[in-house]
């Protein structure tokens, strides 16, 4: 039982950066903009969070730096795709390349890959009294870093925002039919800018989870997590609550890789362990399988925002 609780706990931890990035991506895509720069924004957030945390020793500054830098990176994307109507796909890809470069450049100045205790301590797992006593689920959900809780709260807030508020309704109409939204007096470009930037900020915070809590800084530490988030957006059918399950499912897959390493298999007289490189493939192959499954059972109500990926020209109406 303890092993299961530990596994779930790890799955949730490993799913947390994906959850933040996925919710960020959902907000952005709801405005009609497909941002393939998630990986880049996560890397920038990861390095900035770590760097500022190391220099200032202040955990709040560290997370803020991750959010702001992720948001600024998204701003570049917003200027090119919203105001200048650039191609979403290529601009997003460029943002990833640019972000990787920026992150590795700043990363080179990190000589000692360790954070001061003042930054690390607040993010350690904390036991929430009573709730952790629930068998299995208690330990796996409630004995976690505050990051994990923040991510869950953000996902729930995003759900409420999108489905229960006027602003959220406006945002959805911008993504579905920008011309109609414009005609009804919604400032389309403003909505797009704001949500692309908030989305980027969430991606930045997601990246900083990796560098501050999970791994510490190293080059390309996201290793495709940002791309998996792009798939999770579709997987969750643009619903932040479903994104939680998706993210934890992929978190479990990441955790599984680590678990399977220690298993020995009998092979022609000797015991061998499964090569780590093959285990590392699991999340990526699973992503493809999930993607195929989603597209097979497409439903009317589970579609992408109608204007996703196409620029909006008011003058073309």
């Amino acid at each position: 039982m303890d092993a299961l609780a530990l596994f779930l706990q790890t799955a949730i931890q490993m799913g947390t950066p994906m959850l933040l990035a996925t919710v960020g991506g959902i907000l952005c895509e709801k405005s009609g903009h497909l941002n393939l720069g998630i990986e880049g924004m996560m890397l920038i957030g990861a390095v900035m969070g770590f760097k500022i945390g190391q220099v200032s020793g202040n955990p709040i500054l560290a997370i803020s730096a991750a959010a702001i830098s992720g948001g600024l990176a998204a701003l570049i994307y917003a200027i090119i795709t919203v105001t200048l109507r650039g191609n979403h796909i290529v601009t997003g890809l460029t943002l990833t390349i640019f972000g990787t470069g920026v992150a590795n450049y700043i990363g080179k100045s990190i000589v000692v890959p360790a954070l001061p205790e003042s930054v690390k301590a607040p993010f350690r797992s904390i036991n929430i009294p009573l709730l952790t006593k629930i068998p299995i689920l208690g330990k796996s959900i409630f004995n976690q870093s505050i990051y994990v809780h923040i991510a869950i709260i953000i996902a729930i807030l995003a759900y409420i925002y999108l489905n229960r508020t006027r602003l959220g309704l406006n945002l959805r109409s911008v993504g579905e039919n920008p011309a109609a939204a414009d005609a009804s007096g919604i400032n389309v470009d403003l909505y797009k800018y704001v949500h692309i930037i908030i989305g980027g900020a969430l991606c930045g915070v997601g990246g900083s989870y990796l560098s501050i809590v999970e791994i510490g800084w190293r080059d390309n530490l996201t290793a495709g997590i940002g791309w998996i988030a792009v798939v999770l957006i579709i997987f969750s059918t643009w619903d932040p609550l479903k994104a939680m399950f998706g993210a934890y499912f992929f978190g479990a897959l990441r955790a599984l890789g680590f678990q399977l390493q220690s298993i020995k298999l009998p092979f022609s007289g000797e015991t061998i362990s499964v090569p780590i490189q093959l285990l590392d493939m699991i999340p990526y192959i699973a992503t493809i399988i999930v993607l195929v499954l989603i597209t097979i059972r497409k439903k009317e109500e589970n579609q992408a925002p109608a204007s996703l990926g196409s620029p909006y020209f008011r003058e073309d109406r």
């Binding site: 460029t94 390349i97 990787t100 470069g101 920026v102 992150a103 590795n104 450049y105 990363g107 080179k108």
Partner: peptide, 11 residues
């Protein structure tokens, strides 16, 4: 750092 060339490419 040679990451500069990535940044230049992006810009």
């Amino acid at each position: 750092p040679s990451a500069v060339s990535d940044i230049l490419q992006g810009i």
